[in-house]
Design a protein around this nucleic acid. Structure first.
Lengths: 161, 161
DNA sequence: TATTGTTATACTCTATAACTATA
DNA sequence: TATAGTTATAGAGTATAACAATA
């Protein structure tokens, strides 16, 4: 029975009747709500497309930062990703145990590590890139190229001006 | 020393020199990256503005769904939020232990619970709403009203058409 | 048979505080 | 004094698989 049919009969629709008509109420206007749902979808898409590589979004993020900033230290890599340096320790531990990344000694500061991709790490990124692109394309499947750029830009402005 | 200064001197900039000039590389084009950062910022803003209420984003999400769909069951509430029904159990446990929400018996199905806000739950939402709005306004502080709507709309299309 | 809620388990992600080695 | 990395701890989020009760 639809809501309409129920109205005709003068009986209230039951929960089961409106299974696809849940009222999001104020949620519909909350950025936090839409961000959360988009993030969940994106995580699941990432997992589907990259499961063969056994890598998490956070781990890949570190690898991509290091790829473009060889020799960067952990604190600065954390800043690039917007997370605390303590968050990176276990991520880098895992990548290092797989010999994808290396904690090289920094020439001028014995406190810090100069992060470098290993040859295996570079190969790894080269191999997973098609899957990463397929993942991103799935996330943006309902967006035009323009909308995709706009979304990236607007999201960037949430973090900073 | 700036990069420019280093270039003039013919010496490569060290890591310390380019502390604010980290190259995001491919990350800049990845929706997943921007979503993640926006989500982290949003969580932190939520925690700042709503800490007096001792409630998590997930808990508040459930309350808002129930507010607009009194009598909804847990499985359907999960669908409204885009999460598995198992995810809601502990969230609702906490809300119920604070007497903000109630697992009422469903009239026609003894398997399911009819979720309802308690009077205290309604009061609670009324009290926290100004802080929720302040939180959302902070997240959108760099966006015009139009951009804010656009962002919500584009995020919605990531989850579904 | 299928669905609802629950539990157990496991995996993301994140941060704060305190410690050590070094600058 | 201040900074880089580490550890311990805590808490946010998520899912899958299996179970009992009920439809």
């Amino acid at each position: 029975m639809t809501d309409q049919a129920a109205a005709k009969l003068g009986t209230a629709p039951t929960d089961a009747d409106r299974i696809d008509r849940i009222d999001p109420g104020h949620l519909r206007d909350l950025l936090g709500y839409h961000l959360r749902r988009a993030e969940v979808f994106t995580f699941q898409s990432f997992a589907r497309h990259l499961k063969a590589f056994d890598i998490s979004p956070g781990q890949l993020g570190v690898m991509l930062v290091v790829e473009n900033n060889p020799g960067i230290n952990q604190t600065r890599a954390g800043k690039a990703l917007g997370v605390d340096r303590s968050t990176l320790v276990s991520i880098i531990d895992k990548l290092e145990s797989r010999a994808l990344i290396e904690r090289a000694s920094a020439p001028n500061d014995r406190r810090s590590h100069a992060l470098m991709l290993t040859d295996a790490g570079r190969d790894f990124i080269g191999q997973l890139k098609p899957s990463l692109i397929a993942h991103e394309d799935e996330v943006a499947r309902n967006l035009s190229a323009d909308e995709r750029r706009t979304l990236n830009e607007l999201l960037g402005r949430i973090v900073g001006p």
